[in-house]
Amino acid sequence: MSSLYIARSRQVAARELGGEMMIMSARDSTLFSLNDVATVIWQAADGQTPLDEIVERRVCAEFDVEPAEALKDAESLVRELEGHGILMVSETPVVSG
């Protein structure tokens, strides 16, 4: 399977509060809240690091989980965030302009 690259949308304001990320979408005034594992993925979404590498180096290093399970959950999360318009998901590195 090809790698996925993820990048945060520029149309959001995000702040970390108590280990959880609060994200406000300027597009439709929706407030999102990510739990601790989702926050790690969000913070690593630089558009250049493949998702499987983020999972292996960040999620599995910090949380007690097997890479296969973590990757499956991460893919599900990023697709959901993409659907909300706050994360870009691509099969090639995302160039931030």
Partner: peptide, 17 residues
């Protein structure tokens, strides 16, 4: 040792106004 308990990553959301 040293790793936190894993929770499935999740997002909650609410339309503010």
């Amino acid at each position: 040792k040293g790793r936190k308990p894993y929770r499935k990553p999740e997002v909650r959301y609410e339309k503010v106004f």
